[in-house]
Design a protein around this nucleic acid. Structure first.
Lengths: 246, 246
DNA sequence: CGACCCCTTGACATGCATCAAAGGGAGTGG
DNA sequence: CCACTCCCTTTGATGCATGTCAAGGGGTCG
């Protein structure tokens, strides 16, 4: 009952299944995140609001991991840089997301502001104190880690198995699931095409062509550069989930 | 001191730095794994030895996650299957490795025997009881999760940024670091070429060609199909870590 | 010895990267 | 308010790395 990871599983079960398939998982992800966010709120007296401008670096891989961050507004990219200048964006963080929480002494990746962002920073030592006092916080952290984990695993499949159009479809679907849970269609594409490319292991040109093709097929519409409408979720899912659509 | 994640970080620090660069990280990974393995040993009375034959499925994605496993001997692949039959091997598990530990109700991936394997299975509920009694076990699990995490992140870079030869070089280096920590050269390539391909997001032919090319260049030697000698670690590292080698 | 399975190599096809240039959109200065 | 400029996106032309298809090679097991 009050055991450690079992609680995590109870939490996951307690949640009524909203939609079958992937959407459910994201629902759980958000659920855990909200719980975690609540925990962090008790640290508000020790937290600081920080602002970063577009393209500013929040921290670098290897920096001493003295703070965890929660996003108030804006978008952040988490990325790894290789010695020869290539980079891989492992994920984007949106408002409400927490990052830098599960590091060792040093951050394992860099964090950069995609847009102007407002963050709350929580000092490491206060976080440690918090979960020394409240063991159940550890469960939430574990839960969040496991979710993050599944997300990365899905992304491994994207990078390992999918072609350009499928990758873009996967990306758009996940973005839509993260922002509106409903079948809502309008997506805020706050990151540039180059960032999407770096996330999907493609070039900017290939991303553009894939988007254009989806537009031509009527699956999506782009009212402007940073906004996008999903007209045909079914077609996108067929692409993203690898169903042959003959 | 006896706080939760801080302990994890103390453990990581306490370890003297063995070798610079990636090897250090793997050293820490092994360290955590050994600690975790020790914890599980207290569960031995409840554990069962299980044998699986080559290519047998240990569990499927979606199965109820009633057991965690530790490998005694043999190799296991963790993989995701897509509806249309493609698959992505997220990682290989070697003797000493533990898997299935951080699942929710259901496993998030499938596990299959690459070779004949001998496993120890630990019942979920006993694990829960263990870390209800010994909170420091949770730290080890967290530490292991974080390590696993960094591993996946590095693999994201491999899949997102590297070409075929670089991928194979990365794979061989990691394998060598996991098995012998020294500059040892002989690697046991227990998995088939097709499995390597599925792990690296390539086809079997491309993997073969990359290996052949590395052989031609003298970087490696293949005494037989399932054994491989690294002759030139420097060249392989240059490839894997993306240093321009003009 | 033969059959099977997997690996290896070759020939060819193609999807994506690369190179190049034109097309918006937003901010700035006249 | 318009024109200019800059930055990013989009589209096109071309080349290359890797996928695909096909044939042969080598080891292992019956």
């Amino acid at each position: 009952m009050s055991t450690m990871l079992s609680t995590l599983r109870v939490e996951a079960m307690a949640r009524a299944r909203p939609i079958p398939g992937r959407a459910m998982e994201d629902g759980e992800a958000r659920h855990h995140q909200i719980a975690l966010s609540e925990d962090l709120r008790t640290l508000d007296p020790f937290s600081t609001r920080v602002r970063f401008a577009r393209n500013e670096t929040i921290f670098c891989e290897g920096d001493s991991s003295d703070y965890a961050f929660k996003i108030i507004s804006g978008t952040v990219r988490l990325c790894a840089h290789t010695p020869d200048g290539r980079r891989q964006i492992s994920d984007f963080m949106l408002p409400g997301d927490v990052f830098g929480l599960m590091e060792r002494n040093e951050y394992g990746f860099s964090a950069e502001a995609v847009t102007d962002v407002m963050l709350v920073s929580y000092p490491r030592n206060k976080i440690d104190e918090l979960w020394a006092k409240k063991p159940q916080v550890v469960n939430r952290v574990l839960a969040a880690l496991v979710e993050h984990f599944l997300t990365m695993q899905r992304h491994l499949v994207v990078l390992g198995c999918q072609n350009a159009k499928e990758r873009v479809a996967s990306f758009l679907l996940r973005l839509s699931e993260r922002t509106q849970s409903g079948a809502g269609e309008r997506i805020d594409l706050s990151m540039g095409r180059q960032d999407i490319a770096s996330h999907l292991g493609l070039t900017i040109e290939t991303v553009c062509r894939a988007i254009s093709e989806l537009k031509r097929e009527g699956a999506i519409t782009t009212p402007n550069l940073h906004e996008l409408i999903l007209n045909n979720l079914g077609a996108l899912r067929a692409l993203a989930e690898g169903e042959s659509e003959d």
